[in-house]
Simulated assay, not measured.
Amino acid sequence: MNHGALKEVPWTLEQTPMPESGSPAGVTGLPAGSPVNLDTVAAFARSFGFTEQFRINVPQDDKGVYTVSADSMDADTTSPTGDHTVHIDRYTGKILADVRFADYPLAGKAMAVGIALHEATMGWWNTLLNTLMCLSVMFISISGIVMWWKRRPAGSLGAPLYPRDYRVPVAIMVLGLALIILFPLSGAVIALFAIIDFLLPKRLKEAGFQSA
């Protein structure tokens, strides 16, 4: 139900079949006999739980429906638990589908919450958390350079040497495996550098790159 770059409904619902207008299906929505148009659909949405910002997609053909939606991905709601999508028959005003956060599968709930956390739209504490995360990445980047500078071989710009009896800790291997699974491109970079390290002559790795 999403078209191109325009996200008309949450990602969790974009592969959901669109209901069609013109059948006896559905449950009571707009009052019987009332016209079904943009104004009456908007008024009904406000009385049906859409208390924050929401959007309405109008029917595109004879079988199209009115779709009322609000989700945190589009910053309509302040929390993903407020996600709400309703499809309304353009002729009868009946509700053909009413999907809320509670109806999402586990993966859909995790995605909705994850996007909100990533975009820091869940309140001041979320903004603070994301700020701390950004600062931690900056700290890791700067401290990594400092540690390399302190441990580099004397008179060299090469990498610090491993002890001859060095073994990779199990915890590091587990973290690396988790990183590869969660971030495949990062895993590809790790694999690339491992191959380069393996192919480099031992004398280069032991001596480092001598500075001028």
Rank of each mutant, 00 (worst) to 15 (best):
K94D: 11
N130S: 09
A112H: 08
L157D: 02
I88D: 02
N130D: 10
V146Q: 07
W124R: 03
W148K: 09
A116L: 13
Y91R: 12
R100C: 02
R152V: 12
F139H: 03
D89G: 06
T121H: 15
N126R: 06
T92S: 13
P160D: 15
D89N: 00
P105R: 14
A159T: 11
G158L: 11
S143D: 10
T92N: 04
A154E: 15
G144W: 07
M138G: 11
V146M: 13
L157S: 07
A112T: 06
F101R: 04
V113L: 12
M122P: 14
D98M: 02
A120N: 05
R151P: 01
D89I: 05
L117C: 06
R152F: 03
A159K: 06
I115Y: 14
H118L: 10
H118P: 02
A102D: 02
K150I: 05
R151L: 15
K109C: 09
F139A: 10
G114E: 01
G158E: 07
V137N: 08
M138N: 01
L132Y: 07
T92M: 04
T127F: 14
D89T: 01
A97C: 01
G158C: 14
A154S: 13
L157I: 13
M147C: 00
L96G: 03
R152G: 04
A110D: 11
R152S: 05
L135C: 04
T131L: 11
L132S: 05
S136K: 08
V99C: 12
Y91I: 09
R90C: 09
C134H: 11
I95M: 01
L157N: 14
Y91T: 09
G158N: 12
M122C: 15
P153T: 10
I115R: 14
W148E: 04
I142M: 08
A110I: 13
N126T: 15
L128A: 08
T131H: 06
G123P: 11
W125K: 14
S143F: 05
G108K: 09
A107E: 15
R151C: 13
L132G: 03
P105K: 15
D89Q: 00
V146H: 01
M147Y: 08
R90N: 14
V137M: 12
L135Y: 12
G144E: 13
L106D: 14
G114Q: 00
M111T: 12
L161A: 12
V137E: 12
V137A: 09
G123V: 08
W148Y: 10
M133W: 06
L135K: 14
S136T: 01
E119N: 13
P160Y: 15
E119K: 07
D103N: 13
A112C: 04
L157M: 07
C134W: 11
